[in-house]
Design a protein around this nucleic acid. Structure first.
Lengths: 222, 222
DNA sequence: TAACTCTGCGTATTTGAGACACAAAGTCAA
DNA sequence: TTGACTTTGTGTCTCAAATACGCAGAGTTA
């Protein structure tokens, strides 16, 4: 089957920067390419847009195929269309970023790749295409948005402690935040809901367990 | 001439939301379509991506053809790809927004349109495609970015007074800002450079003339 | 029961945004 | 020439939020 048009058309893909937090570091999902170009190199998960799906639908489908997960947070990032970014032909890629709880995922490589794995952001291997650039851009957006949204909660289960939330912020921002001021700020934000629960994890006072006042919804907090 | 591919490709366009300030209101550049679909309707300027130009290059070229202007500020906004956004065929459009000093422009309609004109944002006619949505999104981005960048200066000539700068902010944000606090904030930002010049415009004290400390460069100020 | 560790709350200081008063520097008209 | 008028430019006060840091609370372990 072939497709013919009267004037130039382009391949369109969605690539997704999937962030998670594992072992106290910010990690991103990479797949190992099984075919040329860049065969054997790591790359972002993604794939071609189909005629019957919209852009976000494409990103969501590609990621579901790879992780088995549905309902994750997904946001359009930027569109990359440099002429030679793909050596084969002109490919326009609409980049997305997603946030996922890594404990909820079991990776299952898609058909056109030979492996998929999480990689720490500060230990990235050489990547295919312009994917380093895409990841750098996604990381900036993520860090900036922590400050004025409830994005961070996408990394946590429904119920969590202040320490867990604090750790997410420190990990993503890559710098220490005063624990006590952080507690205050979070409580003052009005986004947290206390629960009756408390959690004992070690030889010390148990931590109160919180949940989001508006779960399953990313809110802009200013 | 025709173009044939092994799997679905898509038309890719760049549409540009061109903002300017005229008569004390925020205005946007619209063109009147000369052909179907939406013949006779107003739409955003834009056009098809050519194989030998990148996305920003496409936006820049389309706008240069329309306004004769070069070197304006241009930023990628968002990519719209809903399946039926163009009734003819699937079109992916990468939206940009540009800021222009309207006094520096003389409009000259491109070949495929019958007219081009500035329109106040609060008096938009019905638009073609999803262009209302694109404009709304661009307006949000512009207003948000005034707060933490030197974007506003793109609406002003190289040398300007505090009053002119103040008017730009009030117009874009659509609300009054205390003049005296505004002065203080701008001076404290460190982005302004005093000049020896002052400007006399009426029966009152003349205003000091400033210029940007880093002209021709949009800076993030936090 | 004392040592230890993390949790939770409080307080004091600094920084920045916003409200508002008033002097300064011009023109214009009497 | 002088006073009315208008816009420019600076300062002060207040309040809210961010930051620095002290310390009691509530568990476990030796």
């Amino acid at each position: 089957m072939s497709y013919t048009y009267d004037y130039p058309h382009y391949a369109v893909t969605a690539d997704i920067v999937v962030f998670t937090i594992r072992d106290g570091t910010l990690q991103v999902l990479l797949v190992k390419r099984g075919a040329a170009p860049f065969k054997g190199r790591w790359a972002l998960p993604g794939g071609y847009l189909k005629p019957d799906e919209d852009l976000e639908g494409c990103a969501r489908r590609e990621l579901e195929e790879e992780t088995g997960l549905a309902g994750f947070y997904l946001e359009q990032l930027y569109t990359f269309g440099a002429i030679k970014r793909d050596p084969r032909e002109r490919v326009i890629t609409v980049a997305y970023f997603a946030l996922i709880r890594s404990d909820a995922v079991s990776l299952r490589p898609a058909t056109d790749v030979v492996g998929a794995d999480w990689t720490a952001l500060d230990a990235l291997p050489p990547l295919a295409f312009d994917h380093e650039q895409i990841i750098a851009y996604a990381r900036e957006r993520l860090a900036a948005k922590l400050d004025y949204s409830t994005l961070a909660f996408q990394f946590l289960p429904e119920r969590f402690t202040m320490r867990e939330l604090h750790a997410v912020y420190e990990t993503v921002l890559g710098k220490p935040l005063d624990r006590r001021n952080f507690y205050k700020k979070m409580l003052a934000s009005g986004e947290l809901q206390e629960t009756a629960e408390s959690r004992l994890e070690g030889a010390h006072r148990p931590a109160a367990v919180y949940r989001l006042r508006h779960p399953g919804e990313v809110r802009i907090t200013r």
